[in-house]
């Protein structure tokens, strides 16, 4: 694979000393503290962590929807001030405009930029072709499957030519089979487009399979617990998920996350609750117990 590779020069995310807290009646509650991450131009970086750890909050801050309480977020040296088409975002809930056809959805960002109709139509068609969705350009999102909706969502986010792509558990609502296919499509598209990606997920396999680097977050308030480089070769194939290298990475990340998940569930599983798991039923069935 010695194609002449042009190194991407834009899409460098730098987050320093990041902290975000909410004001409540009992004072401020920290959602994310003390977080430093960076994404190099053209790099695929994931953040994994237990649910509720603040990884989505963090991503929303990078997108510009939330203001950090402390610290700075810059993209190519420019501080993030609010949402912008420079940072394309893909949401878990698909978030396609139901009143627009697939192509109109993809065109939206270009329309906002004031591009002429015929020009943006052509651009949208090309992009839809890349994702194998040309045949569905006139469909309304309602008629698409979840996987197709999310492909449109990704294409739509890419259409404006953003510096970075932010994905917030984009495959979280998909069934396991579709999810695997979507991961393959995403890694393939990333390989061709060489765009910087910041990907948030709770799925460890997904993070390893897709990423160059994985940040592992602690339970709430979230902070970076570990940074794990993924040295698997590119292009990634599904078969790699069985390799000993992959499994070793998986074991490592798994134990990191498990610790944090237990911490996060601390309130739910008390010591007493854990004892319940050990009560001996002496072969009684459910009917005997009740």
């Amino acid at each position: 694979m010695s194609v002449v590779e042009t190194r991407p020069v834009r899409g460098h995310i730098e987050v320093k000393n990041f902290a975000l807290s909410y004001e409540t009646i009992d004072g401020s509650v920290a959602a994310v503290t003390n977080t430093d991450i960076h994404v190099n131009p053209g790099e695929f970086v994931s953040i994994v962590g237990p649910s509720g750890c603040g990884k989505s909050t963090f991503l929303n801050a990078v997108a510009g929807f939330l203001k950090p309480t402390e610290g700075t977020i810059t993209v190519d040296g420019e501080p993030v001030k609010g949402p912008s088409a420079e940072r394309g975002m893909v949401f878990q809930q698909y978030s396609l405009f139901p009143w627009k056809t697939v192509r109109e959805n993809v065109e939206f960002g270009l329309k906002m930029r004031g591009m002429a109709r015929s020009q943006r139509e052509r651009a949208a068609r090309t992009l839809l072709g890349l994702a194998g969705l040309e045949a569905f350009e006139k469909h309304y999102p309602e008629r698409l499957s979840g996987g197709m909706k999310q492909r449109v969502g990704i294409v739509r986010a890419l259409a404006t030519g953003p510096k970075v792509l932010l994905l917030d558990e984009p495959f979280g609502a998909l069934d396991a089979q579709t999810r695997v296919i979507m991961q393959q499509i995403l890694t393939n598209m990333w390989q061709r487009l060489k765009i910087s990606v910041l990907f948030v997920t709770h799925d460890i396999d997904e993070a390893i399979f897709l990423s160059d680097r994985v940040y592992c977050m602690t339970a709430r308030p979230g902070s970076i617990k570990a940074e794990i480089p993924i040295p698997l070769e590119r292009p990634r194939q599904q078969s790699m998920m069985m390799s000993s290298e992959f499994l070793a990475l998986r074991r490592g990340l798994m134990s990191l996350i498990r610790e944090e998940s237990l911490k996060a569930m601390g309130g739910e599983i008390s010591d007493l609750g854990m004892q319940g798991l050990n009560i001996e039923l002496h072969g009684q069935s459910l009917a005997d117990v009740i």
Partner: peptide
């Protein structure tokens, strides 16, 4: 939010 991310005012 999706619209904002796509540059809508």
């Amino acid at each position: 939010r999706a619209a904002r991310c796509l540059g809508a005012r």
